[in-house]
Computed example of a mutant assay.
Amino acid sequence: MELSVGGEYGIVIDAVGAEQFAWLRERAYAGWVLIMDEETERYCLPRIERYLGSTPLVKIVVPAGERHKHLDTCKFIWEEMFRGGVGRRWCCLNLGGGVIGDMGGFAAGTFKRGIDFVQIPTTLLSQVDASVGGKLGIDFYEVKNSIGLFANPQAVWVDAGFLGTLPEREIRSGYAEIIKHALIADEQQWSELRDIKDIRGLDWPAVIERSVDIKRQVVLKDPFERGIRKALNFGHTIGHAVESYFLHREDRLLHGEAIAIGMITESWLSHETGDLSAAALDDIRDYCLRVYGHQHVPEASFPVLLDLMRQDKKNDTEAINFTFLEKPGEAVVNKTATADMITRSLAYYNSLGS
């Protein structure tokens, strides 16, 4: 299956193999850069290594994890590119999860004013969300993705076979983006997801295709996030702040776990300030708690979280910008909430664990 993003690039949902690499060779690049982290080098590289052939290749391995998604790691990538003789007619292959896709794409998009790149996402999170849409970047000043750019890949190769290399917790993390896509744009899919008791038995290629297509359609309408594309940030204003806060703690949260907190709190805000029904809020709350459990957010962190939200790149003014739900399947962008309301939403979430 291949989905086109406005003729700019294709998203191939299939096993990565000889066909994709033959397509890449036909483009006659001078060489390839392969960016991966320690985990994907160990678990994912063997799946594609036999297709690399004799094309000049520079392999760059970086530490795994969101805490390494920063300028120093990019500096290392750029230095390795220079040492390897990488030029403008090279192509960068980003083999990994959302961190590698975001950071590898950012490094490629800025190296010598930009070289081509291909996304090969290996986590569920990156397959349904991070690899699609051309948003690239790194974390800076403790704010997620605050330095970056828009640049489209030459292709995205989505291979559900890579999911077999992941622990169950990582699968659940990526599943949060599937929930989000359904809540903002596909009421029927949300109804289907609510009936799923165990996500381990899902037909992942079919689920991934449906979720990717939701994001693809939103991106086509608003490639530079000036309007409706902000709907994709549902759950992320609070969720990103929570993720950043927990990043350097021993009880660190994965992205999807933090976004689940964001979806519950932002659904509560949608109900308190807008049209989302109490029944819909209850459904979203109960489902997210069933999949992700409950993680207490220390009350002492609330001022820190608010400061992180104020730094969010989606804000156009001093107000904190949100996407709210009118009902499952329908989102409304450019909504705001007061600091008091946001604090109350976090208190509401904490009360669910008592």
Rank of each mutant, 00 (worst) to 15 (best):
F150G: 10
H68V: 08
C92T: 11
V156L: 10
V86D: 07
T165Y: 04
Q311K: 15
F246H: 04
H294T: 04
T123A: 01
E177Q: 06
Y245C: 12
D72K: 03
D283R: 05
A347P: 07
C288E: 07
M103F: 01
K221F: 03
R47Q: 12
E243W: 06
H271F: 11
M341E: 12
K335F: 10
A155N: 10
H68G: 06
Y287S: 04
H68Y: 12
G293F: 01
E192A: 06
S211K: 00
Q20R: 12
L276M: 12
I13K: 02
R113M: 00
R83N: 15
L305I: 13
E49M: 01
A130P: 13
K112E: 01
T338Y: 10
G148K: 09
W78I: 14
G7K: 03
V332T: 11
V5L: 11
H296I: 08
L95P: 07
V207E: 14
F21H: 07
I259Y: 13
G96Y: 06
R50C: 06
A347F: 08
V291G: 00
L346S: 05
I196N: 05
I264Y: 03
V207R: 09
L305Y: 14
H240C: 10
G101A: 04
P153E: 08
M309V: 04
Y29C: 15
M36Q: 12
E79N: 15
V33W: 11
V207K: 09
I35Q: 01
W157P: 08
N94W: 01
N145Y: 15
I342M: 07
R249D: 00
R172L: 08
R226L: 09
V99C: 05
L24R: 13
G201S: 09
V218W: 05
S267E: 04
G31A: 14
C92G: 05
W90A: 11
W78N: 02
L202R: 10
L346T: 05
R42E: 01
A300T: 11
V218R: 04
W204F: 12
A339N: 14
V86C: 06
V212T: 00
A185S: 11
